[in-house]
């Protein structure tokens, strides 16, 4: 049975989509069949990291939610599009992406008309069955809304991303309280965009002490990430970079947790 992992942050700009893409591809590189759904319908974008633009996909999650097509029509096999710094990289598994529309009119329509939240739950289940997925990653909208609450509620594991920032710290407490009320079995915190000047172990200890939840990884700010500018999956471009090593360590932890 597929493991559903939701990736969330209380505030925007934490690097959620980038980490989602990196971790999902790292899991796929271990021979797993992985799906990624962009439920950040109001501010989508993870498809850009996989080299997709509006012209390269005909159906999006929006089409499914409006009853225009089945969920399987919205899933794109991006495995062959995984670029490295000097070409393409084959991974042992598969990566399927369900993008959300980046067209202003379609985003406005979701806000204007809403959608059937139950369809989203059905779609996740159908997707895992039809694509025979081992893992389904849900890239959620920052903060809390209906689809984010559903994604959290049905998750086997939840990854919460925060920066070492006071506002993120307060917001993460809110997310954790909600996740605990929704009985999420596994919760992992990831600290992203940590300044190089901060002591890694001290930050991890501070976060773990504050929330009583394990920190699965800490990612430092780096120039290479800024230079890549969401034009690819970071660890494929910089496989030896400490950020990439941390991505693989987190992927291993998530896979180990799901095998319990």
């Amino acid at each position: 049975m597929a493991q559903i992992i939701s990736i969330h942050s209380f505030r925007g700009g934490t690097g959620k989509s980038n980490l989602t893409a990196n971790i999902a591809v790292a899991v796929a590189s271990q021979g797993k069949r992985v799906g990624i759904v962009d439920t950040d319908i109001q501010s989508p974008g993870i498809h850009v990291i996989f080299g997709l633009d509006e012209d390269s996909f005909t159906h999006s999650l929006n089409d499914y939610l409006w009853g225009r097509c089945g969920i399987e029509k919205t899933a794109y096999d991006v495995t062959a599009e995984l670029k490295t710094a000097d070409g393409y990289r084959e991974v042992a598994g598969k990566v399927f992406l369900v993008p959300a529309s980046l067209k202003a009119g379609e985003i406005a329509r979701v806000l204007r008309e809403g959608f059937d939240v139950g369809l989203l739950n059905d779609g996740f289940q159908e997707l895992t069955e039809q694509l025979d997925l081992d893992y389904l990653f849900i890239d959620t909208h920052p903060g809390l809304n209906e689809e984010t609450l559903l994604s959290i509620a049905i998750s086997d594991a939840m990854v919460i991303i925060l920066r070492p920032d006071r506002q993120d710290f307060l917001g993460t407490a809110v997310t954790l309280e909600v996740a605990q009320r929704l009985d999420v079995p596994e919760i992992m915190l990831l600290v992203n965009k940590s300044p190089q000047a901060f002591d890694r172990e001290a930050v991890i200890e501070q976060v773990q002490m504050r929330y009583g939840v394990a920190v699965g990884g800490l990612f430092q700010e780096n120039d290479e990430m800024l230079q890549l500018a969401s034009s690819g999956v970071f660890w494929l471009h910089y496989p030896e970079h400490p950020f990439s090593q941390e991505v693989h360590a987190v992927a291993q932890q998530l896979m180990a947790a799901s095998s319990h």
Partner: peptide, 21 residues
Amino acid sequence: QPKLQRRKGRNMPTKIWDALE
């Protein structure tokens, strides 16, 4: 089965929505 309600649309002046579509 859980009975999940429709996510409601937001109320804004029609002029704004029409301009976006």
